[in-house]
Amino acid sequence: MDPVKTVAPSLAGVLDRNLLWMVWNSVLAWIPVALALLLFRGERDEERRLPVSPVWWGGVALLMLFLPNAPYVLTDLVHLRDDIRAAGNGPVVTTILPVYGVFIISGFVAYYLVLAELDRFLTAWGLGAWRFPARLTVHLLCAIGVFLGRWVRLNSWEPVVQPAGTLDRMLLALSWSWAPVVITAMFVATAVGHFVTRAVIESGVEAARKGARLLRTRKLA
């Protein structure tokens, strides 16, 4: 007998319905973190302002193809209504919402880590003044990517494996009269989500550092 179904049948139902696609979308959201670590943690060449290797720039393009998968998790809230209906009279706050909460937080943590690596990279290359414009540009590109992924069902790898057909679908979707509105909404949601995630993580890290320093001071005393 499954202990989860015995103790929390509503939670088991949520996991049965959503576990597969949530795990898959989470994997897609964290792929950019691995790519960012590979691209932005290399040693700085003192003779050049930026890497010029075609392989490196190809990696950047691949990163930007996959990065929208991180904030994309926010749009998966479209499944929430069906889960609430399926729960019937079962608990929602203690079962369904925590599952979605962990899923969405994971996506935005991945997004934060990628942009943190980009910030460190730009700073290391003496381009710290470009961090904010670069961040806004990434938010915008991701907003467009989320729009294409949710409303056109475009996958990250399709521009590589089917470039011609993908371009036609993108142009058709972007010509929709409501596309700018949806993209703007996704830009705001992505920017706000990143801002909140960054504030929470960096505040937590700073608090942990202060606590560690305080403990060391007490031990020395």
Rank of each mutant, 00 (worst) to 15 (best):
L67D: 02
A164P: 00
I31V: 15
A12T: 03
V93N: 00
L19M: 12
L80K: 07
W56K: 11
V161Y: 06
F103M: 09
L77R: 00
R48H: 14
G101E: 11
G101C: 11
G13C: 03
A116G: 08
W176A: 15
D119W: 11
E117P: 00
Y112D: 02
M64P: 00
D16F: 07
L74W: 05
R209V: 14
V152H: 01
P163G: 03
G58Q: 10
L77I: 15
V152A: 05
F195L: 07
G165R: 08
S156H: 03
G101M: 09
L140F: 15
T184N: 00
E206V: 09
G126P: 08
L127H: 05
P180K: 04
R17E: 12
V109A: 05
G211S: 12
R131S: 14
L38S: 08
H139G: 08
T190V: 10
R85N: 13
W176K: 04
D83I: 10
V205Y: 06
G88P: 10
D76M: 03
L37M: 13
R41F: 08
S175R: 14
A143T: 02
G165D: 11
V152C: 01
T137G: 15
V146C: 10
L77W: 01
A212T: 07
V181K: 08
A143W: 13
G149V: 13
L65C: 14
A36I: 05
W24C: 06
V23K: 07
F132V: 06
V152Y: 01
V60F: 07
M64Q: 08
V205H: 09
F195P: 08
V23N: 09
F132T: 02
V192A: 07
F132S: 05
I31F: 14
R48F: 11
V102P: 02
L215T: 07
E117R: 09
W178G: 12
V196N: 02
N155F: 13
G101L: 11
N25V: 07
R41I: 00
E46A: 14
F187K: 03
R44V: 15
G13H: 02
N25C: 06
W21K: 13
A87K: 01
W176D: 12
I104V: 15
S106C: 12
M186K: 04
